[in-house]
Computed example of a mutant assay.
Amino acid sequence: MTTLVIAEHDDTTLKASTLNALAAAKQLGTAVHVLVAGHNVHALAAEAAAFEGVEKVLHADARHLAGGLAENIEPTIVAVGDRYTHIVFPATAYGKNIAPRVAAKLAVGQISDVTAVLSPDTFERPIYAGNAMATVQSLDPVKVVTVRLSAFAPVNARSERHAPIEALAPAPDSGRSALVGRELTKLERPELTAAKIVVSGGRGLGSAEQYKAVLEPLADKLQAALGASRAAVDAGYVSNDFQVGQTGKIVAPDVYFAVGISGAIQHLAGMKDSKTIVAINKDAEAPIFGVADLGLVADLFEAVPELTGKLGA
């Protein structure tokens, strides 16, 4: 049995999500290969070859693979799919875009958002917005799996002996899809899914101006990432890059501040695995207090600036 991990990158940097997927793959008890597909990504292939547990790196390089477009990456994966018993993707926008296409072309089912590997053919995954956990067994010859990043600690150990890198001929360019440009959100703070501390705001903040004025000073003091509930995103306080929840990003930081967030089930699905949850809300009956480790019933416009002030310079 051999597992293929699909590396996520931007043609320049190997994303941390790849290391979470690699951790999940190692728990399968199989040989582990990594596919690095992109344009001018030999350095990333060499980086992937250095991680412990990787036995081989497949390096597919072509101009039409630049940008990680699912329409162009999927044929290259499918071309080697029957060599593997498992194909593992990170459950990010990148992985979720490619995995269903691969599963469909291989005529197998997809197992999404895996949080635990119970055996090579049996997995645990959340259902009903995380309110129940399902045990899923697959008898398909190839298991196409996406893994929840917060459930698997990333592999950081490096091996003294680097895995061999095999050049893989990419599937031909179909000509149907090409990257013509990209607008990226540049963050001065830690990335939301990788931050150790997250400060999130909800509709209780009232406006985009209040979100910025109340939460940014606290986040700056804590060197934290900023997040938001879907209600705050829908109200236009921040862009959807900040959204935490079932339809946003799944986070599990050391500390999660929920400020002015009521605690809808969809939001809880994205952050309830945080090690410590701190809730600030003036509504003592807000559902967020049901999962919070520390709860403060107070006016956030008074409590948050006071907290920020007490943190010092």
Rank of each mutant, 00 (worst) to 15 (best):
A298M: 11
N281M: 06
I127L: 11
E302T: 09
D254F: 04
L226Y: 01
D121L: 03
E52P: 04
N97T: 03
T146S: 13
F152K: 03
A93P: 07
I98S: 05
A70S: 13
A50S: 11
E47I: 00
V147Y: 07
A286T: 02
Q266G: 07
Y128I: 02
V155S: 10
A235K: 04
A49G: 09
A219P: 03
S200A: 15
H162A: 13
H33P: 10
A169S: 14
G270V: 05
P126I: 02
A284W: 08
K310V: 09
V117W: 08
T135I: 06
P100Y: 11
Y128K: 07
R230Q: 14
I280T: 02
E160V: 09
K212V: 03
A129R: 04
A66T: 03
P172W: 00
N240C: 07
P154W: 01
G201M: 09
G263E: 07
K15M: 11
E124M: 13
Y211R: 10
V297Y: 09
A50K: 05
V114M: 05
R158Q: 07
K275W: 01
H267I: 01
Q243W: 00
L65C: 07
V214F: 01
A16Q: 13
E52Y: 10
A163P: 01
Q137I: 00
A70H: 06
N156K: 15
